Amino acid sequence: MNHSTRRTRSVVFAGLALLGLMSAVYAVRRPLLMSAPRCLGGHWHGCYDTENGVVLMMLVGLPFAVLLAWALATWRRAAGAVSAWRSSLAEVGMVYGTVPMVWLTLMPGPGAGVVPGRLSLVPLRDLATMGPIGIGGNLLIFAALGFFAPMRFAVLASLPRILALGAVCSILVETAQYVFQLDRVSSIDDVLVNAAGAALAGLLSRRWWRTAAETRSDQRHRASVAVE
């Protein structure tokens, strides 16, 4: 496959992803806009403590995230780094796409601090009660991490490792929910679906995964820059 064909496929993929994002935003535009007055007015309550508000501000901040990735890539290219755009986009993407989702999962319920932590350790028992929206949301929590992490770190460029990364991160979140008594159920099914979401997202980015050879090339470049 020549460079022109790869570039065309990348443009098509980016266009489809953007179209999907715009369609999703349009579908949920009304609940998101309900939080707009509080969020744009700089109020914490009614914005950052609500799911709609967090998602809205995540979308509003998307252009700034793209600008940050561009700035990092420009700096890396000026320094002669390998895969400057991919590394920069991966770093910004896995942080920007994961932190708000984790924030949503750690948002306290109405009985936070009063209701004791609850555990559900029987696999697949809670899956039937999640519903399509619950399952979809759990798949997305670490999707950005699963998609971008292997693009940045060669050590994570394998499906079992991405699955393990998603599972470990999910266990940490579920543990925090239980320890801090956030009025949420810490469920093994959440861990399973979170990890599956990370793995599925990783499969989508497989053709851009970082290789060990690229890592060694970057290390040699940093060493040469340090010597100079």
Rank of each mutant, 00 (worst) to 15 (best):
N2P: 12
S4Y: 03
T5V: 09
R7P: 10
R7E: 07
T8W: 10
R9H: 08
V11H: 06
V11S: 04
V12F: 13
G15F: 11
A17I: 12
L18D: 09
L19E: 05
L21C: 14
L21Q: 13
L21M: 15
S23E: 11
S23Y: 09
A24W: 14
A24C: 10
A24N: 06
V25M: 15
V28Y: 04
R30V: 08
P31S: 04
L33Q: 12
M34R: 09
S35F: 02
A36Y: 02
A36V: 06
P37L: 07
H43Y: 02
H43D: 08
H45P: 00
G46N: 08
G46A: 06
Y48H: 04
T50A: 02
E51D: 14
V54S: 14
L56G: 13
M57Y: 09
L59Y: 12
V60Y: 13
V60N: 11
G61N: 06
G61M: 10
L62G: 05
P63D: 14
F64Q: 13
A65C: 07
L67S: 12
L68T: 12
L72T: 06
W75I: 10
R76D: 11
A78M: 07
A78D: 04
W85D: 02
W85A: 05
R86H: 06
S87T: 03
S88K: 03
S88M: 00
A90F: 14
G93Q: 03
M94S: 01
G97V: 04
T98V: 09
V99A: 07
V99I: 14
M101T: 04
V102P: 01
W103L: 13
P108D: 00
P108W: 04
G111Q: 11
A112F: 09
V114N: 08
P116E: 13
G117A: 08
R118C: 06
V122G: 01
P123N: 05
L127P: 05
L127M: 15
A128V: 14
M130A: 01
M130V: 02
P132W: 09
P132R: 10
G134M: 15
G134S: 15
I135R: 11
F142N: 00
L145C: 01
L145P: 04
A149V: 08
P150G: 01
F153E: 12
F153V: 06
L163R: 11
A164Y: 07
L165R: 10
L165S: 07
G166L: 04
A167G: 10
C169V: 12
S170G: 07
I171T: 01
I171G: 09
V173R: 03
E174V: 04
T175P: 05
Q177G: 03
Y178M: 00
V179K: 05
F180P: 06
L182S: 07
R184Y: 09
I188V: 02
V191L: 08
V191R: 01
L192W: 07
A196F: 12
G197C: 11
G197T: 05
G197M: 08
A198K: 07
L200C: 13
A201R: 07
G202E: 14
L204V: 14
R206A: 15
R207P: 07
W208T: 10
R210G: 14
A212D: 11
E214T: 15
T215S: 06
D218Q: 12
Q219E: 15
V225N: 02
V225T: 04
A226F: 08
V227G: 02
E228K: 14
